[in-house]
Design a protein around this nucleic acid. Structure first.
Lengths: 206, 206
DNA sequence: TAAAATTTTGACCAAAATGTTAGAACAAAA
DNA sequence: TTTTGTTCTAACATTTTGGTCAAAATTTTA
């Protein structure tokens, strides 16, 4: 809020920018609000970062990484399926508990400019085709071996992601509808970490 | 696009407004774009509807109803649990297939102004407390009777909603990551209607 | 401590977006 | 066909917002 802390302005600005951009999205974010949040003059934003779009791109990139890199590297191991699922669930819930605005931010901004996804995806060396292919193979194999019921890899993956991500994406709705305050919401998500895992395993074990 | 069809302008404008607002959200929506989409002059928007905000509220209300009313009335019956689940899933997938932008729109706009949710909720007589209470009771009962495994009502409800809604909310991401075109996406969602139901039932049957 | 470099700001500018209005075009009624 | 009322538009006004710049304040360095 106040600048008093002797943190270098550049970093201080980026922090404020992150808050405001993730809270409001690009279109509704105001340079004024970012400046105020950082406790500095608006012109200073332009001194450190050329313009709104440049700032936004920096923020988007870090958020994008935060959202995708983890799951990507988990999927790319050759651990057994159940273990992967466990890791994805715990990882997602943990990350999103720390950054609850993340999914909504990514979702809306990608919807507004889908080309970003491809662009940044390439930039950080994500290859969806390959990741998906590996996961599909693994699921198919376990199906054939009778370890899990018949299910498409991508449907399973989508189920996992849905169960983890949706409550955060829709957090303001969920909180109101289920009449939870911040604390109970967080508690519920903590319970969910184990709950979802059980739910999925139960659903796919023959 | 063109106005040629002799439809009354008022309705025509609302249609365009709906498209643009759901596509871009309030902040990124441009009056100009709405006018162009309707094939009319920008000033006419103000002739029929006072200003941007008034227009937006009308759109938001209809979208809000579309999103919530169905599930509300399904939950408010006293059918058996599995039947309810089946109905919710099919209903959600059907509605969202017709209005794929709906969840993202509601989610982002509610996040931007959470008071809307309460306001419009009351306006259309939705009582979350009561709805949730009924569902909780029902789940608890089935748990006690040993018909389903131990699970919290709200967790189950959240799972159901997550599995249905998330793929649409994150549609642009899902499409890109899983390399699907519009058609395959829709097909996948159709398969999902049955798939999710099986998944949930399997997960909660003892 | 004086000079040089840097950070920071207030004042201003330009562009973009919303909103207003006088009157043209059109339709309906007399 | 004139008159009256409604629908629509072009041009204008206003507001909001992002961005620039010269100079003040501060820090660094000589």
């Amino acid at each position: 809020m106040t600048k008093s802390d002797s943190k270098p302005s550049e970093e201080l600005i980026l922090n404020s920018a992150m808050k405001v951009f993730t809270r409001r999205g690009f279109a509704a974010a105001r340079m004024e609000e970012i400046a105020k949040e950082a406790g500095i003059n608006r012109a200073l934003l332009h001194y450190y970062f050329r313009d709104k779009e440049t700032m936004f791109n920096l923020i988007f990139e870090t958020q994008f990484k935060e959202f995708f890199s983890g799951i990507g590297s988990i999927l790319n191991t050759n651990k057994p399926l159940f273990e992967k699922i466990k890791e994805i669930v715990t990882h997602e819930i943990d990350v999103l508990s720390r950054h609850p605005d993340l999914p909504r931010f990514i979702i809306t901004e990608v919807a507004l400019q889908p080309e970003r996804l491809i662009q940044y995806g390439q930039k950080m060396g994500i290859n969806p085709r390959q990741i998906l292919e590996v996961f599909n193979q693994q699921v198919e194999q376990e199906v054939r071996q009778g370890k899990i019921i018949q299910i498409e890899g991508r449907q399973l993956l989508m189920n996992i992601m849905s169960l983890c991500v949706y409550p955060f994406a829709a957090k303001p709705i969920v909180k109101t509808m289920m009449q939870m305050d911040e604390k109970t919401f967080n508690q519920m998500m903590m319970n969910r970490r184990e709950g979802i895992y059980q739910f999925i395993i139960k659903a796919i074990t023959p």
